[in-house]
Nucleic acid binder design. Sequence first.
RNA 1: GGGCCCGUGGCCUAGCCUGGAUAAGGCGGCGGCCUCCUAAGCCGCAGAUCCCCGGUUCAAAUCCGGGCGGGCCCGCCA
Length: 628
Amino acid sequence: MEGPVIRRLIREASEALEAAGLKDPKVTLTKSVKFGLLTSTSSFEEARRTGVDPMERARSVLGQLRLPEGSLLEKVEAAPPGYINFHPSWGELARAVVSEVLAAPDAYFRVEDGPREVVVEHTSVNPNKALHIGHARNVCIGDTIARVMRKAGARVLVINYVDDSGVQMAELLLGFRLLGYPLEPREGMRFDEYCGDVVYVEVNRRAEADPEVERQRREIARRIEQRGTEEFEQARRVALMVLRDQLKTTSRLGATYDLLVRESDVVVTGLWAEAFRRMKEAGLVRFVEEGPKKGCWVVDLSGHPVLSKEGDEVLVKSDGATTYVARDIAFAMWKMGASETRLLFRRIELDGQTVTMSDVEGEDLGPFRSDLVVTVVDSRQRRPQEVVRYALERMGVKGRYVHYSYEPVALSRRSAELLGVKAEGEVVHMSGRRGLYFKAEEVLDKLKEVAARETRARRPDWSEEKVREVAEALAVGAFRYGMLRIESDRQIVFDLEESLRLEGDTGPYLQYSVVRARKILQKAREAGIGQIAPDRSPPAELSEHELQLVRELAVTPLVMEEVVRTLYIRSLVTHARNLAMRFNEFYERCPVIGSGEWEGFRLSLVGAYDRIESRLLELLGIPVLDEI
RNA sequence: GGGCCCGUGGCCUAGCCUGGAUAAGGCGGCGGCCUCCUAAGCCGCAGAUCCCCGGUUCAAAUCCGGGCGGGCCCGCCA
């Protein structure tokens, strides 16, 4: 098996250039089909070294250039001011691409030299509230990375880290134990929303006004960390109840987890003790004898190029308690498969679905190793995440640990004011305390409403059930695309009205293009026009739109390769969008059914598009539909 | 004070890693296209000092340096 045709052509072009005397030639895709498929700018570099005119150099290379017998690259030309452009026989390329896609579409997504064992941690929302749109960004990114890695051929373990022992749990318990909130939400309210919207907000309000409430909160926080106390048990129970609802949301978004790890288990299993011991052996930690951090164990950051300018990071507080970073180092070591300590797991039922959750009385799932660990956490945790990475490096842990950082989701002024908050600037940060946030569920519901209204208007004959099913898929598609289309390094300024659009550069645009393709295929089947055949050559020269579509399909393996290498999901989104655009253009101008001698080829091309775009949508977690 | 991220038509974004041929898409505006595979679509028009200055280069939105503007981080919180 030679692999996708695009790789073969790049190799042929660069070998031919080399044989023609260009040293270490660079071959890239052209930016427009009118320059052919592939291009090289290496004659520019050579021209500089030798002082000749690049165009002249390109011509002289051309004189020496021989392409292999039967190559799909049929024409090479020099273009001013010195490019060497490779033009394929588009018809033959189309036949090759369509036939290999129809024969084995998944091969376009396999990446041979990528990581084989991958751990992805994402979501990891404190179990005291419902997911808001900021958390949802994390879920969409993490889930997509996991899907991509799996599709590329890696074994992937997806983990959701559940912090059930921090102060945020103490605040909740305080509400239940002392302020008398019942452990049941009001009728018709979800438990996670009840905790986040009602109990948490109220406890904070009371604690700010009354120092006694604040004192009790601290007392509960202390007891919550001691296994065996009533508070410990209750915190775990409440966390589980909230988690159950959070998982409804993540599941609605299409995300799944292989393992749920409770922070309370990371400490008791001795994972922390092992990490602490190994850090001591590596000379990475020291005990502070004096100064403001007297009595603490800290990570010695003096050897770190940047962090050394700031203070050392506290791992063990003077009262003996570990910090979040400490536990995270221990957990990261485990995720890398580098710890001797094993976490134990047990399968439990949570609201109908079976999940695998850490449990000190569970079973050992056996050792594992990972050559890549991706932790999806927002950019505000860059510093602690760098401390984690540095600690692993200094402990001699092998493998790549990546903090996949993304900027948080903020609100537009308009949307903040919708929540009753007077905004100073154009961008307002969400705040759980102030009730200033949009929950993922409410945005999805609104999106679904809009989609249902549209669908009803377009398909008056559909049943309400069908309408709602399609509306849900469109809502999820629009939501996930909205979260993924913005580069991770860029803050998302969420605007409700803007996010409820279903036209233009949105998820439904992609979904619709697949629906169109599938409708053609279905009609063809019904009309008995015949099967899409893998080996159809176009009867004459391809139109511009067919050729663009072929090119975009062909490039898919290169995009996958890039995404796996850089973890830069944005390229996948752009590719899925460009491909859909090419298809829509093709659709508008090239009739398929009833196109006579073109019918067979075009039908196959549509089939190939359906195979590839459906898989791209799947990777992005955007539901694929047969009709909308 | 130290560090990180962002700055692209009126608005929202892609392109930057890996420099290359007219800077791409959407929203909004104006004008077109449904006796033909679903118009959640397509086509056309108007609209850009790619934040500024300097450097490297045959070539800079892209790389380097310095500014300016916006955001974030530097806690015995998580």
